[in-house]
Design a binder for these strands. Structure first.
Lengths: 187, 187
DNA sequence: AAATCTATATACAGACCTGTATATATAAAG
DNA sequence: CTTTATATATACAGGTCTGTATATAGATTT
């Protein structure tokens, strides 16, 4: 991938997260990236295309990082679920953290017909599905229910952490997750 | 309050919730409300003023409804905390439910200098504070911690319910809340 | 050295948005 | 009936945004 294209993606990810997607014009993006609109529109057909690619890249990076981390550091399925929020905390508090795109995107694009809404909604569903599969492997009865609860904690904590770095929300989310996982495991 | 003004407020609340705040122009609001821009700008100095009033009204309505409900239906402090999510579920699943304004607003206005961001952030803090006071009265040690956890569940569930009515998220949030409250009460 | 590819600089069309100005209707009150 | 207050209709100024058109500079290849 061209260095300019990836530079634009990085800058857009950052600006979308800190200033909002709709409030960030392409002029601002190219100015910060140190290029021009002509170049941006060479690599992305439209701003919507850029948004979709930012979302796709961010989600892919997160999912890859998380499943790698889980697969290399744990063996037993039950352990994976327990370690999940450990790694999420690590991700969220890392300097590379630029927020979870789909959380903000679904709020800024509430129209269900919007491709941006559809993608972010799909990514949210995928992540919940991933948690649910971990819960299933750990022999938890209501895997979908637990996955939904954990995703509520996750999305809430990420949003809080986005709004105010070092809010500590993720710490309490982790504690809550442990309690919920333990509760769901016993019956 | 003039009927036209309240009509504009109701319509704006609805459109902000379903289409997003930034994506809803004042032309659309007055068209749906059956009036004109001149009238809107008579009652609201600017669109930002309208947004702030929508937020204030919505939050006030919710807080009033909730504390009334808690005060009339329960006596013991510990009961209030237990009943909290019962009533929240009732609120969220009621036909009148038009979402919690501050959740969406804080996502659409991430700039900390924005008055809209400041108000929505303050409302989120106030609600958390209210939960914390309930927890304190129920003699829970880490009242702030539990309040943060419950607010994560609440905000996550409301957002999920906003995005897809009847998602059932609030039901699982309620179950999770019960577990967390019980856990925090025993030690 | 000539041709080609990539990025820049700049201007602009067309759309949309907020907020205001002006003129008109309607209805209540003196 | 006349005055006054309230709402409408409509047009528009000024700004911002996306996306494109045009001309130019630099660098690499032939």
């Amino acid at each position: 991938m061209s260095t300019l294209k990836s530079k634009i993606l990085v800058v857009a990810t950052d600006l979308f997260q800190t200033r909002g997607i709709n409030s960030t014009g392409v002029d601002t993006i190219v100015a910060v990236a140190g290029t021009t609109k002509m170049t941006l529109y060479k690599y992305f057909r439209s701003k919507e295309d850029l948004i979709l690619e930012v979302l796709t890249t961010g989600h892919h990076d997160f999912q890859t990082w998380l499943s790698d981390k889980l697969n290399t550091n744990t063996k037993k399925p039950s352990e994976k679920l327990q370690k999940l929020f450990e790694f999420i905390e690590e991700w969220v508090t890392s300097p590379n953290f630029r927020g979870m795109g789909f959380i903000k995107a679904s709020a800024e694009f509430p129209n269900e017909e919007s491709p941006v809404h559809q993608l972010s909604s799909e990514q949210s569903r995928q992540f919940r599905q991933y948690i649910s599969s971990l819960a299933s492997e750990a022999n938890i009865q209501d895997a979908d229910g637990l996955a939904l609860q954990l995703s509520l904690l996750f999305e809430g904590a990420v949003q809080a952490e986005q709004m105010k770095r070092g809010s500590g929300a993720i710490k309490y989310a982790k504690k809550a997750a442990k309690i919920l996982i333990d509760g769901a495991s016993t019956h």
